[in-house]
Nucleic acid binder design. Structure first.
Length: 221
DNA sequence: CCAGACGTTGTT
DNA sequence: GTCTGG
DNA sequence: CCAGACGTTGTT
DNA sequence: GTCTGG
């Protein structure tokens, strides 16, 4: 699954996603569900993209209780098009979630690992977003990260990982008019030949720890 | 018909 | 909002 | 995802 | 065991 990831400050985030402008983002090394995360989506009624901060944990527009978002942190690629909680967002509100990489845990050892590109480049997770309106004009915009099967390399740690969209496919993923039948192909496991996995310190386990140390590799025993 | 769920993960 | 279970 | 709480009353 | 908060 994908329940923790990192997005340090990147030069070139705006140009990578072809954004007109991007808000200054605080560097984050230990991003957790329930917090606001950076999301790239189409500007409504326009073809340009925007980067906004949305709550991680999708609250469907029809939800009676916004607490449902606690449970909707990930959506399985295999079923996202059909699940009531996700299918409308899958059709109309897809987004990209920038990251340097993500954490996965080796369950038995509670040992965290970090997964990123070999070149330490920007990744984009496949995401969905929604807008919920409650009483007193309360509005929550929220998002979820789509997961898919692990590739062979990540599979040594865990059997799922976030779906990663390649830059060549950003437009097709974001565009509401894309042929929906072509979308599942974008959600296949990212090739492990382009990635690295390495163990990191147990300090990552505690969400309060949010420093560059989180990314530091340790000796793999 | 109304009430209640709507999800993923890991572990047993 | 929409589906499932009772 | 993991860590940490998990409760009520009355008083300051 | 299960929920909430980060």
């Amino acid at each position: 699954m994908c329940g923790r990831f990192a997005l340090p400050t990147f030069e070139g985030l705006a140009s990578h996603f072809r954004l007109q402008s991007a808000p200054a983002l605080a560097p984050r090394y230990n991003i957790t569900p329930g917090t606001d995360i950076a999301v790239v989506r189409l500007i409504s009624d326009a073809h340009d993209r925007e980067l906004v901060l949305l709550r991680w944990g999708l609250v469907p527009y029809w939800a009676k209780d916004k607490k449902i978002g606690c449970k909707l942190v990930n959506a399985r690629a295999e079923s996202v098009a059909d699940k009531p909680a996700f299918r409308d967002a899958f059709r109309q509100r897809r987004c990209l979630i920038p990251a340097l990489g993500f954490y996965e845990w080796l369950a038995k050892a509670r040992q965290p690992y970090f997964v990123r590109l070999k070149e330490s480049g920007i990744l984009a997770f496949a995401g969905l977003w929604d807008r919920w309106r409650g009483e007193n004009n309360e509005t929550i915009e929220s998002c979820a990260i789509i997961t898919t099967g692990a590739n062979l390399m990540v599979g040594r740690i865990h059997d799922r990982m976030p779906a990663i969209i390649e830059p060549a496919h950003y437009d097709r993923w974001l565009d509401q008019k894309s042929d929906r039948a072509s979308l599942p192909a974008l959600l296949k496991p990212f090739p492990d030949s382009k990635m690295v996995v390495y163990p990191v310190g147990m300090g990552v386990n505690n969400p309060k720890n949010d420093s560059p140390d989180c990314l530091a590799g340790i000796k793999d025993n």
